[in-house]
C-alpha cells in the first residue's frame, strides 16, 4: 500500500493522479463517438498532427495548447478538403495529411528543443504534470463533458443515422467538425499523460471494450470512461513504482481490459460463444 501512502504525501503525484483520471474519462467519452462514427483513424491522425503545433508554440514561447489546437483543426479541415474534392478515399487522405504534419512536427521539435522533450511529448510522462497542466486538463475535460451532455441527443442521432439527422435540419457537417475540435482538445489534454503516439489507444481501446459489453450508447460512454480512467491509474502506478514511461503502460492496460472483454463478454465474448455453440451441438 506504499502507492496509496505516497499518493497522500506527494503533491506532484496527486496532480498526476487527478490529470490521469480526467484524461481517461474524456478519452473514453470522445472515443465512444469516434469509433461509432468510423473515425478511429481520424483520432490517430489528429493526435499525431498536434506535434508541429506543440513545436511552434515552444518556439514562440506560448502555451503548447494554442499551437496544438491550431494544427489539429488544420488537419481535420485538410483531410476533409482532400476527401471531398478528389477521388482519394478518406483513409488514404488521413494517412497522407497526418504523416506530413507528424514529420514536420518532429523536425520542428528537434530544432526547437532537446531530444528529452521529444520523448516526453511522444510517449508521455505523467509524473511531470505541472499545476497548469492539471488545470488545463480539468478545464478541457469539463468543457468536453458539458458539451456531450448538452448535445447528447444530436451526437447520438448524427452518429447513428446521419441522413435522417440532415433531413430534419441538423448541421451534420458542423457536428463533424465540432467533434474534431473536441477530439483535438482531448488529444492536447492527453499529451502529458499518454503522449502523442499512444493517445489513440486511449481513444479507441476503452471505447471498443465498452462496445463489446453493452447495447446502449449512454452505458457505453460511461463504461469507456471508467476503463479509460482505470487504465490511466494503472499507468500512473507503474510509472511511479517501476519508473516506466506512462504512455506505453496505459496503452497496454487498455489492451488488457479489452482482451478480457473480448474473451469473456457475456454477449460478444468468444469464450461464451464457443460454450454456447458447444452446448447446442451436444443437444443436437
Amino acid at each position: 500500500m506504499g502507492f496509496l501512502h505516497d499518493l497522500q504525501t506527494y503533491a506532484f503525484l496527486q496532480k498526476a493522479f487527478v490529470t490521469s483520471i480526467m484524461v481517461g474519462i474524456i478519452c473514453g467519452v470522445i472515443g465512444s463517438f469516434i469509433i461509432l462514427r468510423g473515425m478511429a483513424l481520424m483520432g490517430d491522425a489528429i493526435s499525431h498532427a498536434v506535434l508541429p503545433g506543440v513545436a511552434i508554440s515552444y518556439m514562440l514561447g506560448i502555451n503548447y495548447f494554442y499551437g496544438a489546437v491550431f494544427t489539429g483543426i488544420l488537419t481535420a479541415f485538410g483531410i476533409g478538403a482532400i476527401t471531398q474534392n478528389s477521388r482519394i478515399k478518406s483513409d488514404s487522405s488521413i494517412g497522407l495529411v497526418f504523416s506530413a504534419f507528424f514529420a514536420l512536427g518532429i523536425i520542428l521539435i528537434t530544432k526547437a528543443k532537446s531530444a528529452t522533450d521529444l520523448t516526453q511529448i511522444l510517449f508521455g510522462n505523467v509524473l511531470a504534470v505541472r499545476s497548469s497542466d492539471m488545470w488545463l486538463t480539468l478545464a478541457i475535460g469539463s468543457l468536453v463533458i458539458l458539451v456531450v451532455i448538452i448535445f447528447y441527443k444530436e451526437l447520438l442521432v448524427s452518429s447513428f443515422d446521419e441522413t435522417m439527422a440532415a433531413a430534419y435540419g441538423l448541421k451534420v457537417r458542423f457536428i463533424h467538425y465540432a467533434i474534431m475540435f473536441l477530439l483535438t482538445l482531448v488529444t492536447v489534454a492527453s499529451l502529458q499523460t499518454v503522449g502523442v503516439i499512444l493517445v489513440v489507444s486511449m481513444l479507441i481501446t476503452p471505447a471498443s471494450t465498452a462496445y463489446l459489453l453493452t447495447n446502449r450508447l449512454s452505458i457505453m460512454v460511461l463504461l469507456a470512461s471508467f476503463f479509460g480512467a482505470l487504465s490511466a491509474i494503472i499507468g500512473l502506478y507503474f510509472s511511479f513504482e517501476y519508473n516506466m514511461p506512462s504512455g506505453p503502460v496505459i496503452a497496454l492496460a487498455t489492451t488488457g481490459l479489452f482482451l478480457l472483454a473480448f474473451l469473456f463478454s457475456p454477449k460478444q465474448g468468444i469464450v461464451f460463444r464457443k460454450i454456447k455453440a458447444f452446448n447446442r451441438k451436444k443437444l443436437a
Binding site: 461509432l36 452518429s159 447513428f160 443515422d161 453493452t214 447495447n215 446502449r216 450508447l217 452505458i219
Partner: peptide, 17 residues
C-alpha cells in the same frame, strides 16, 4: 419530413435498442 433510409445505410451493430 420523415425519412426511412435504405437498410444498407445503417450500422446494425450500433449500441441502441
Amino acid at each position: 419530413i420523415a425519412y426511412v433510409p435504405q437498410r444498407s445505410n445503417i450500422d446494425w451493430n450500433f449500441p441502441i435498442t
